[in-house]
Amino acid sequence: MKKLALIVLPSLAVFLGIFVGSYPTNPLNLTPGAVNIIWEIRLPRTLMGVSAGIALSLGGMTLQAIFRNPLVDTYILGVSSGVALGAAIAVAFLPFAGIAPLALLFGLLAVFFAYWMARINGRISTVSLILAGIIVTALFSALLSLLELLLPSESLYALVVWLMGSLSNADWETVIYSLPGVLILAFLLFLLRWNLNAMSLGDEAELLGLNVHLWRGIFVFISALMTTLVVSFTGIIGWVGLMVPHMARMLVGPEHSRLIPATVSIGITVMVLADIVVRLLPGDVPVGIITTLVGVPFFGYLLRKTGGGWS
């Protein structure tokens, strides 16, 4: 029953993703115009949603496992501040370079910086990484503010809107840069599922024959890369990485050979449905606003229920 739901729900979401929007596209009577709209706009947009759903959810899930904390997602590593700074640099100085490459570069740079700072004598703890993430975020945000002073008003406004995260600008080009990488990393994560299980015991994983600090680094890198592969194109879509893994765990438990598929399934469903909501609203509302509106109360509930740890 659960398995069926985990297959049907994302399929349904993707189906709706392809057939819901402001342009009339009746699946039973497709006009050539409708086919074009689906092929050029809705399909890439939906696939970008799939990519974002997978990457953000698995990124959050992985970090929650290795840091044994349900209230953690990839953004604690400073990814968002890095991406924001990269985007701002692109807008301010390199209008021809495009936003994504610099956002990607700085997003990863932020993570490496935080990771480097948190690594003390070859060891890396949750607290030190969270603190390092805060430090990096503070530094990058300060640089961003400095840069914002140089930006004309319309660039600043555009940057702020861009950072809220949206799938509306997805096209085949962005999908091709994002989705295959995300799928490969997701598959890699699935292959490493048993190590991830062991790593979720914390330092005890050493007794199971794992080089804990090496694997922590590997998993941090995988989740950071996955996240930046999405947010460099879409902007910061928040809270998905916190919400989805928790829902998946409630459904199938913490064992990753079951948790990874469930997280992927729910991630796709949540992300694509959130985007469909946005499509039905007037204008071009960033989907990040919707995920935040849903995610924040959920996070609050989680915090109160778990007290910040696992019950």
Partner: peptide
Amino acid sequence: TFPFKVLDFVLLGATPELGTF
């Protein structure tokens, strides 16, 4: 930490005998 099933938890002991993947 995570509420693994008892069987899964014992199976974690197999980790040293498993390859990376």
